[in-house]
Simulated assay, not measured.
Amino acid sequence: MNKSEFIFNKVCLFLERFMIIVFGLLVLDVLFQVFSRYLLGTSFTWTEEFARFCLIWMTILGAAYLNGKREHLSMDFLYDKLNDQNKKKVSVLIEILIFLFALIVMVVGGLNLVYTTLHLEQLSGTLRIPLGYIYAILPFSGFLIMCFSIYHISNIYKNKINL
């Protein structure tokens, strides 16, 4: 195992464990909300917002994780009809497009969103957390997707990825 595979595996393992923790917190939060509503007769407003933030983080980190594992949704009807040389070219083109999307939309746009919300000191409704901290997952995941795309392109050229 070379250095890039080692780092790739460690990053994926970290993402898996972090998403398990976030999902566990989400489950506990929802269970607490149900418990408090039906057994205590009161509802806490912060549980809904916390669950929403957990779902945001799970979704965006999950997209980065699936991109890294190359398990994201794809329509491969036409791709399967290509020969191996053209599959290699199309795979590299797809990775470049994913890289550009992650760079422009997720990293640049996400950093702009984080900066704006922190500069304007916007806080969440009930938890009173600066929204920039919640939105920071967007550029972070975009950066991960960019790194995964570079990793995949190098593996495509090294013929380590099954086309």
Results as ranks from 00 to 15, higher is better:
Phe140His: 02
Gly142Ala: 09
Leu103Trp: 02
Ile134Pro: 01
Asp76Cys: 03
Phe35Met: 13
Ile98Thr: 12
Pro130Ala: 06
Arg17Leu: 15
Asn112Thr: 12
Ile137His: 03
Leu113Ser: 11
Ile96Leu: 15
Ile94Leu: 14
Thr45Ser: 13
Gln122Gly: 04
Ser124Cys: 10
Ala136Lys: 07
Ser124Phe: 06
Asp29Trp: 02
Glu95Cys: 14
Ala102Asn: 05
Tyr135Pro: 02
Phe8Asn: 09
Gly41Thr: 10
Asn112Ala: 15
Ile98His: 07
Leu144Lys: 07
Glu95Lys: 15
Val90Leu: 15
Glu49Cys: 08
Phe6Asp: 06
Ile134Gly: 04
Thr59Phe: 11
Ser36Phe: 07
Asn86Ala: 10
Phe148Val: 09
Val108Asn: 05
Asp76Gly: 05
Arg70Pro: 00
Phe148Thr: 09
Glu121Met: 15
Phe32Leu: 14
Val107Pro: 00
Leu28Arg: 05
Phe101His: 07
Asn112Cys: 11
Arg37Met: 03
Asn112Lys: 11
Thr42Asn: 11
Leu26Asp: 05
Asn67Phe: 01
Tyr79Glu: 09
Ala51Arg: 04
Leu31Ile: 10
Thr117Pro: 00
Tyr38Leu: 13
Thr45Phe: 08
Gln122Lys: 15
Leu118Asn: 09
Glu48Pro: 00
Phe23Trp: 06
Tyr135Lys: 06
Thr126Gly: 12
Tyr65Val: 04
Leu73Ser: 10
Phe32Ser: 13
Leu93Cys: 11
Ala102Ser: 13
Lys88His: 09
Gly142Glu: 04
Ser4Lys: 12
Asn9Asp: 14
Ile60Asn: 01
Ser36Gly: 05
